[in-house]
Write a protein that binds this DNA or RNA. Structure first.
Length: 522
RNA sequence: GGCCCGUUCGUCUAGGGGUUAGGACACGUCCCUUUCACGGAUGAAACACGGGUUCGAUUCCCGUACGGGCUACCA
């Protein structure tokens, strides 16, 4: 047990798009595996044929790829020694274990119809009891414990549908050791006789999960807190199957909560509050409505996978220091399950933006240009690579997303056709108009067209005309860009070069002059 | 309802028997920048409550409250 190679699995069910809580579970599994030099496995838990959503599996694979947390074994990532990795493909192997449990007296066949089950639950409810199928009630149901052996055999031979249920002991303490929470102790009287094997021939999650973890030699089960209540059942199953000595260790992760109010983070919250809940955009069938439902992802919103991962890593885990920015490698190095917090984490979309900003600023201008070029292409803009790189240099300090570059700096590519009315109204007059003309001329004669030199020229012109630079600085900016704010002015000029700068100034003088004319006449 | 898990600034969290309870996001003020942003400085802001244990509890224990999860032939 001690010396086993660490093997962990991420085991989603393909019932819809993988949501960020699932991504975090996958991430923690990944980090834990890498930290311990172990294996990270992707297993698809598709034992529920009713809720199967076409495309969901592929979505999961793509999402993990985008996040950069790739399993080294499993669906979509290549088979290892324990293939297959889809429970529907492993279907033939489960029955024998369920039968073994029956044989050993730890489980039994049950023939009750859903109507009979409903009736039993109602009856129990009426009696003020909330128990379901358990040590007491099973006495009154149709199962291999109450029916004669002949009857059971006959029913099975007649192909009557049946399930296999675990026979939970009446009064026994079950202890689960959770790495994050310590010992969790539950009395078996609180557990019910869960179905292990369904009448459709598929195992339930509980059965499949144990059989697969055992046969795949999983050493640590890292999953969401919603599984904590069924962990005692799982412990019992390991025991009854005789696998307790190689039972994995458990770690139940705190849930991701919605930003406002309380409750589990859901797709609805994202729609309502305007942030993505999923890594990738897409459209998949909704299991409830049976209608295709589209959803937006972090990728399409312009988030970098590194930023997304970094953000999500810190929702429920924290290093001992104050560091908040981690590369994947650093996360691997620092991660430990012991430092995962116990309480649920409210998701904060604002901080997520901050993470992206941090990563944006770390990118080189060239990297950003590569990302920006497709955006430009979409806008029908073509420009020289060095120019685009220069634009990125000027804009990256101000933006959270590459996608913002366009809205914040489209004027760098397209000369303005309108000019900030406020600034014009306040600053434009005959004198300042003359100043713009003067600077324009002066810039034509500026030999070295750098930020430093153009600024000198600008100031010299202002001085020459007896105007304070502050009086005309913003007007000048508006003439160049059309808007009152933006990157450092003279850096912009340098990027434009002399020709474009002068052209813009001359155009501005004409356009604004005409505008003023019209205003004056009307 | 029952069972289980949880509770440090608005949020993510560090800390842990004696601390001015630390950081980050967001927010306020100021500086820098002749703009915006970045950056810097600074401010406001938290140990859910009640009992124990203790010389001393935010920290340990027990209750209460509140929140969450589970309670299917779903995972």
């Amino acid at each position: 047990m001690e010396n086993r190679r660490v093997r962990v699995r991420f085991a989603p069910s393909p019932t819809g798009p993988l949501h960020m809580g699932g991504v975090r579970t996958a991430l923690y599994n990944y980090l834990f595996a890498k930290k311990h030099g172990g294996d990270f496995i992707l297993r698809v838990e598709d034992t529920d044929q009713e809720r199967f959503v076409p495309g969901a599996e592929q979505y999961i694979v793509e999402a993990l790829k985008w996040c950069g947390i790739e399993p080294n074994e499993g669906i979509g990532f290549g088979d290892g020694p324990y293939a297959p990795y889809r429970q529907s493909d492993r279907k033939p192997m489960y029955r024998q274990y369920a039968e073994q449990l029956v044989k050993d007296g730890y489980a039994y066949y049950a023939f009750d119809t859903s109507a009979e089950l409903d009736e039993m639950r109602k009856r129990m409810e009426a009696m003020g009891s909330n128990s379901s199928y358990n040590a007491v009630t099973r006495q009154n149901m149709k199962n291999s414990l109450t029916l004669s052996e002949d009857e059971v055999t006959k029913r099975i031979e007649n192909q009557e549908p049946y399930v296999i249920r675990i026979k939970i002991p009446r009064n026994e303490e079950v202890r689960v050791k959770d790495i994050i929470r310590g010992w969790v102790i539950v009395n078996s009287s609180q557990l019910d006789d869960k179905v292990l094997f369904k009448s459709d021939g598929m195992p339930t999650y509980h059965m499949a999960n144990i059989v697969d973890d055992y046969t795949m030699k999983i050493t640590h089960v890292i999953r969401g807190e919603e599984w904590l209540p069924s962990a005692p059942l799982h412990v019992l199953l390991y025991r009854y199957l005789g696998w307790e000595s190689v039972m994995p260790e458990f770690a139940h992760l705190p849930l991701l909560l919605r930003p406002d109010g309380n409750g589990k983070l859901s797709k609805r919250d994202g729609d309502r509050l305007g942030f993505p809940v999923f890594p990738l955009s897409g459209e998949l069938l909704d299991t409830k409505t049976q209608q295709p439902e589209s959803f937006t992802g972090y990728r399409e919103k312009g988030y970098f996978p590194e930023a997304f991962i970094n953000m999500i890593a810190l929702l429920g885990w924290h290093s001992s220091g104050n560091q908040e920015l981690f590369t994947l490698q650093e996360l691997i190095q620092e991660f430990s399950l012991e430092r995962v917090s116990k309480s649920g984490a409210k998701f904060d979309p604002e901080k997520t933006k901050w993470f992206n900003q941090q990563y944006l600023r770390k990118k080189t201008d060239e990297e950003l240009a590569e990302l920006f070029i497709p955006v430009l292409k979409e806008k029908g803009i073509s420009a020289e690579k060095p120019f685009i790189t220069g634009v990125c240099r000027l804009l990256k300090e101000k933006a959270n997303f590459v996608s913002e570059f366009w809205e914040q700096g489209s004027y760098l590519f397209v000369a303005p056709t309108s000019y900030d009315a406020e600034v014009i109204k306040k600053r434009y007059n005959e004198q300042t108009a003359n100043f713009i003309k003067e600077v324009s001329e002066a810039l034509k004669n500026t030999e070295i067209f750098t930020a430093v030199e153009t600024e000198k020229t600008f100031k010299a012109s202002a001085e020459k005309m007896g105007i304070g630079a502050g009086q005309v600085m913003q007007l000048f900016r508006v003439c160049i860009s059309g808007v009152g704010g933006g990157p450092v002015l003279f850096e912009m000029l340098e990027l434009f070069g002399k020709e474009e700068t002068v052209r813009r100034l001359e155009q501005a003088v004409i356009s604004i002059g005409n505008g003023q004319q019209r205003t004056a006449n009307s």
